[in-house]
Design a protein around this nucleic acid. Sequence first.
DNA 1: GCCGTTTTCGGCCCGACTGTTTTCAGTCG
Length: 575
Amino acid sequence: MSIHNKDIADVFEQVADLLEIKGDNPFRIRAYRNAARTVGNLSRNVSDLISQEEDLTQYPGVGKDLAGKIEQVATTGELKLLERLRRQIPGELSELMKIPGLGPKRVATMYHELDISKPDQLQKAAEAGEIHELPGFGCKIEQNILDEVKRLSEEKYHQLKLTEAEQFAEPLIDYLKKVKGIKKITIAGSYRRRKDTVGDLDILATCQEGSKLMDRFVGYEDVEKVVSKGQTRSTVLLRSGFQVDLRIVPQVSYGAALMYFTGSKDHNIAVRKIALRKNLKLNEYGLFRGKKRIAGKTESHVYEALGLSFIEPELRENRGEIEAVYNGKGLPDLLTLNNVRGDLHIHTKYTDGHHTIRQMAEAAKNRGYEYIAITDHTKRLTVTGGLNVKELHKQMKEIEEVNENTKDMTILKASEVDILKDGSLDLPDSVLKELDLTVCAVHYTFGLSKEKQTERIMKAMDNPYFNILAHPSGRLINERQAYQVDMEKIMNAAKNGGCLLELNAHPDRLDLDDVHCQMAKEIGVKIVLSTDAHRMDGLDTMRFGVGQARRGWLGAENVANTRSLKELREIFNRN
DNA sequence: GCCGTTTTCGGCCCGACTGTTTTCAGTCG
């Protein structure tokens, strides 16, 4: 059994939950949570680090004791401390803590007084009216528990894909902007950091005194429940179950508040520690020396007053960005949409796309691109009407014709070639060599073991006509887990063999993810940003890929399709 | 349990809102 970083992080989170319910030392609990975050955010596999005898205490929040416990979980899959805790209190109690409004104290009270350890017991007790009689509880808390248990059981609520979140966010912002006296309004939080999924929406605003902004917010037609309402902060649930927070701050604090509400939490904690080291205090109202505010109006002012340079929102994950600006090493010049000069993964009516080669080329030209690659599927993918050799030749001929009639734009002859189960490619080499480039992908047999799946892809990359590994993990956000694969091994092989990895910009995929983008950069393998567009407007999803690339610290120099066509052709010629 | 420009002990981010009380504990982000 292979232990993933997430497994280790989950074990530590459970330990922290149970210690919290027990009423253990809060700082010991925080230590377990910090270590869980550190392990969960590592770009390299902890099991590999251990087998290479690397010192785990080099990572923040990991000391001698926790390094030993990490090793214990990684090698045995279990942690003796957690087993011991579970003998004292039921492990399911940590599940109850996931219910909003229930923390360690309330869960502990319900367990000790009413022997409640599972959601169904909780629901029964709440329905029987037993909860509101407990000390510190009341009717509102009991009703809230009933609502939340019901909501969670319906699974109505989950992390939204960035594109879904946009669909809620944009009309709401337009609606709020119409209120009298509003000055600034911005969506902060993970949305601003361009995270692939968003748990809730954090909106930040400044407005004139007496503005009815807060009333307008809770009165929005899509609001199902007002969770809390105050003068500076309110929380609502939309009908879809999506949570939205609005915070109103004074103009003079706008930058500090934007920083605070953009997060991430880990980034904020780290920045506040720097403030403390300089005898300053940072909160959402500003940066203070004693009672005097020395910065707060803009984010740049706050960073500057702390002796740091501005950090782009996408980098604020406490994954080394603070050290980089603190030690003067500096941050990379991040990729922008303007850097992208072409899209190298596009489908047409030849297979499962909706538009013709000419239409897709026109759409790309309208977006300022210099080149595109037409990459329809190969025959193995029958469900898409994958092309056989004869059909592919017909398509290549049409591409030549369209090229002759298109100015300032080159259409590359390409294919999204299926990687078969045995690692061979779904087109003969004699045909592959006629193409300008290939985008190769796994589309079936996702369930292979990690070793077999890795071996399959590495064998495919041995083919001299293999150029780009498309959607390398195969994940579909909120729908399908990534298949098991040793990404570090694949990236090293790609680098040595002159292959590239795709960052698929489709908001359902965003594959590679941010952590793997950073890994690719460290290893030195080049990335290609592509949309996998099946229609003309599909080309517009490039911006999601750019956000993800920025989260992965990528600059234009790390991305192949920021190069000229001439340079690109050299990259794709492996012979 | 971790950590160190206050360094081997003593601190660890901090403010808003709710529901319960009646001055504050619990939870959240």
